[in-house]
Computed example of a mutant assay.
Amino acid sequence: MNNIIRVMMVEDHPDYREGISFALETVADIDLYLTFGTAERALRSLQDAAQQMKPDVILLDLNLPGMSGIEAIPWFKEYSPDTHLLILSQSNKEADVLEAISAGASGYLLKNAPLGEITDGVRTVLAGGASLDANIAKFILTQISTRSKPSEETSKLSDREMEVLVLIGDGLLKKEISDKLNISVPTVATHVRHIYEKLEVQNAPAAISKAFRTGIFPTSS
């Protein structure tokens, strides 16, 4: 099948690595075809000229021996720019989440996430969406909600762009946003592009991160 999602996992704990590998054997559209215990070995595999097929998604731990996951993100982006990075970490620290997303990760989930959440995360980041653990997102919003008012650059977003950004923050894909706002998918794509340009970011997780950090998201009581 051409719709199989090729996944690489970089995780130094054998038990967790094997558990995920075993669980994914039952998932028809995901193929965990490479696993590594260090970032260095994973990066060498991507440099191998014989390795023609690059992974669609990399499941990446942050706390690795040698080069950390955070340090490795820019190298993964350089060696395989079309590959999406989904962090699987034990850390729910705001600093780790923001640093990973700022470095180029497409999503961030905790290791205790159920298999369904991980597989949904893989499919979501591959489709261009953002996959953030709900508790992490709420935690960040709670911590930052008392900070300064939205900056001048973020206040440049139109009302429609704000609507789209909030829905991106809720994890919706472009088609789902299109259905919810009753606008076309190309129109959604245009709004997303304008959001990225105005916030000076390159992807959905970075836009969400900046919205949290600047206080642009409306807070609920």
Rank of each mutant, 00 (worst) to 15 (best):
S131N: 04
D179S: 13
L141R: 15
L181Y: 00
I195F: 00
K149S: 07
D159G: 03
S158P: 03
A113D: 11
E94W: 00
S151N: 08
K198T: 04
A127Q: 14
E176L: 08
A189Q: 11
I140P: 01
V97M: 07
L199S: 08
L115K: 13
T142S: 09
H191E: 12
V185I: 13
Q90D: 04
E197K: 15
T124V: 07
S131A: 15
I168W: 04
K180V: 07
M162Q: 10
G121T: 05
L98Q: 04
G121Y: 01
L157E: 07
S145L: 05
V125G: 06
D133R: 11
A95G: 00
A130D: 10
T187Y: 01
T119P: 06
G128V: 02
G104W: 01
R193K: 15
T119E: 07
K174Q: 14
K138A: 14
I168M: 13
S184I: 05
I118H: 05
K156M: 12
K149E: 08
P150M: 04
Y108A: 12
T119A: 07
L172I: 03
V97C: 03
G107W: 03
L157P: 02
S89Q: 06
G121P: 08
L172A: 10
K180A: 11
L173Y: 08
K93H: 12
D96I: 05
E99Q: 14
L88Q: 09
N135E: 14
L126T: 02
A105M: 07
L141E: 13
N92W: 07
V192Q: 12
V125M: 04
D179C: 01
I168E: 08
E176K: 14
Q90T: 08
I144T: 10
R193L: 08
K156Y: 00
S184K: 11
L110N: 03
A134F: 03
A189W: 01
K149N: 05
S158D: 07
E117K: 12
K93D: 14
L115F: 06
K180Q: 13
V122D: 02
S106R: 08
L115N: 03
K174H: 13
V97N: 01
K111V: 09
G107D: 02
G128F: 03
R147M: 09
V125T: 03
S148F: 03
A100L: 06
G121V: 05
I195V: 12
S131H: 07
S145Y: 09
N112F: 10
P114C: 06
T124C: 13
A189Y: 02
S102N: 10
R193Y: 10
G104E: 06
L173T: 10
S89Y: 05
L126H: 07
N182T: 07
E163K: 15
V192L: 15
L109W: 13
L167D: 09
K180W: 01
I144A: 08
V188Q: 08
E152H: 11
L115T: 08
L199C: 07
Y108V: 10
K111F: 10
R193H: 11
E152S: 14
